[in-house]
Protein backbone atom coordinates (compact mmCIF):
# COMPACT_ATOMS: atom_id res chain seq x y z
CA UNK A 1 0.00 0.00 0.00
CA UNK A 2 1.35 3.38 -0.89
CA UNK A 3 -0.10 6.74 0.01
CA UNK A 4 1.62 10.01 -0.89
CA UNK A 5 4.71 8.05 -1.82
CA UNK A 6 5.09 6.48 1.60
CA UNK A 7 5.10 2.78 1.69
CA UNK A 8 3.46 1.09 4.60
CA UNK A 9 4.61 -2.38 3.89
CA UNK A 10 8.28 -3.31 3.77
CA UNK A 11 9.49 -3.11 0.20
CA UNK A 12 11.72 -6.16 0.43
CA UNK A 13 10.67 -9.38 -1.20
CA UNK A 14 8.93 -11.74 1.17
CA UNK A 15 11.61 -14.19 2.20
CA UNK A 16 9.16 -16.55 3.90
CA UNK A 17 8.20 -17.84 0.46
CA UNK A 18 11.84 -18.62 -0.28
CA UNK A 19 12.08 -20.41 3.05
CA UNK A 20 9.02 -22.51 2.26
CA UNK A 21 10.30 -23.52 -1.16
CA UNK A 22 13.73 -24.43 0.17
CA UNK A 23 12.14 -26.61 2.84
CA UNK A 24 9.76 -28.29 0.41
CA UNK A 25 12.59 -29.30 -1.90
CA UNK A 26 14.79 -30.47 0.93
CA UNK A 27 12.12 -32.43 2.77
CA UNK A 28 10.82 -34.04 -0.40
CA UNK A 29 14.27 -35.58 -0.78
CA UNK A 30 14.69 -36.46 2.86
CA UNK A 31 11.32 -38.12 3.18
CA UNK A 32 11.63 -40.42 0.18
CA UNK A 33 14.09 -42.64 1.89
CA UNK A 34 16.49 -41.64 4.58
CA UNK A 35 18.61 -44.62 3.64
CA UNK A 36 19.01 -43.29 0.12
CA UNK A 37 21.41 -40.74 1.53
CA UNK A 38 23.70 -43.49 2.61
CA UNK A 39 24.01 -45.11 -0.79
CA UNK A 40 26.55 -42.61 -2.03
CA UNK A 41 29.55 -44.12 -0.27
CA UNK A 42 28.46 -47.55 -1.52
CA UNK A 43 27.91 -46.19 -5.01
CA UNK A 44 31.36 -44.68 -4.98
CA UNK A 45 32.91 -47.94 -3.84
CA UNK A 46 31.11 -49.92 -6.54
CA UNK A 47 32.07 -47.49 -9.29
CA UNK A 48 35.68 -47.65 -8.20
CA UNK A 49 35.55 -51.43 -8.16
CA UNK A 50 34.19 -51.64 -11.69
CA UNK A 51 36.80 -49.27 -13.04
CA UNK A 52 39.57 -51.06 -11.21
CA UNK A 53 38.70 -54.22 -13.08
CA UNK A 54 40.01 -52.51 -16.17
CA UNK A 55 42.59 -50.03 -15.00
CA UNK A 56 44.57 -48.87 -12.01
CA UNK A 57 43.08 -45.86 -10.29
CA UNK A 58 43.56 -44.23 -6.96
CA UNK A 59 40.84 -44.19 -4.29
CA UNK A 60 41.26 -40.43 -4.09
CA UNK A 61 40.57 -40.02 -7.78
CA UNK A 62 36.79 -40.04 -7.52
CA UNK A 63 34.82 -36.90 -6.85
CA UNK A 64 31.04 -37.11 -6.46
CA UNK A 65 28.87 -33.99 -6.38
CA UNK A 66 25.15 -33.62 -6.11
CA UNK A 67 22.90 -30.71 -6.99
CA UNK A 68 19.29 -31.01 -5.87
CA UNK A 69 16.54 -29.05 -7.50
CA UNK A 70 12.77 -29.08 -7.33
CA UNK A 71 12.52 -30.72 -10.73
CA UNK A 72 15.59 -32.89 -10.83
CA UNK A 73 18.69 -33.87 -8.99
CA UNK A 74 21.96 -34.41 -10.71
CA UNK A 75 24.85 -36.51 -9.65
CA UNK A 76 28.18 -35.53 -11.11
CA UNK A 77 30.96 -38.05 -10.94
CA UNK A 78 34.49 -37.04 -11.82
CA UNK A 79 37.10 -39.72 -12.09
CA UNK A 80 40.74 -38.95 -12.61
CA UNK A 81 42.20 -41.56 -14.90
CA UNK A 82 45.90 -42.18 -14.98
CA UNK A 83 47.36 -40.87 -18.19
CA UNK A 84 49.60 -43.13 -20.27
CA UNK A 85 52.41 -40.66 -19.67
CA UNK A 86 51.82 -40.62 -15.96
CA UNK A 87 49.92 -37.35 -15.58
CA UNK A 88 46.25 -37.51 -14.57
CA UNK A 89 43.63 -37.38 -17.29
CA UNK A 90 40.04 -36.53 -16.55
CA UNK A 91 36.93 -38.45 -17.51
CA UNK A 92 33.73 -36.62 -16.94
CA UNK A 93 30.27 -38.06 -17.13
Amino acid sequence: MSIFGFQFRPRKAATAQTAKERLQILLAHERIDTKAQDILPLLQRDILEVIRRHMQIDGDAVDIRMERDDERSSLEINIELPDARGGPARLQR
Partner: peptide, 12 residues
Amino acid sequence: DLIMGCERRVVF
Protein backbone atom coordinates in the same frame (compact mmCIF):
# COMPACT_ATOMS: atom_id res chain seq x y z
CA ASP B 1 23.63 -26.56 5.82
CA LEU B 2 20.25 -24.79 5.69
CA ILE B 3 21.53 -21.69 7.48
CA MET B 4 24.58 -21.59 5.20
CA GLY B 5 22.37 -22.16 2.12
CA CYS B 6 24.24 -25.23 0.85
CA GLU B 7 21.61 -27.87 1.68
CA ARG B 8 21.24 -28.94 -1.94
CA ARG B 9 24.92 -29.65 -2.31
CA VAL B 10 25.45 -32.11 0.52
CA VAL B 11 26.81 -35.40 -0.77
CA PHE B 12 29.10 -36.76 1.92
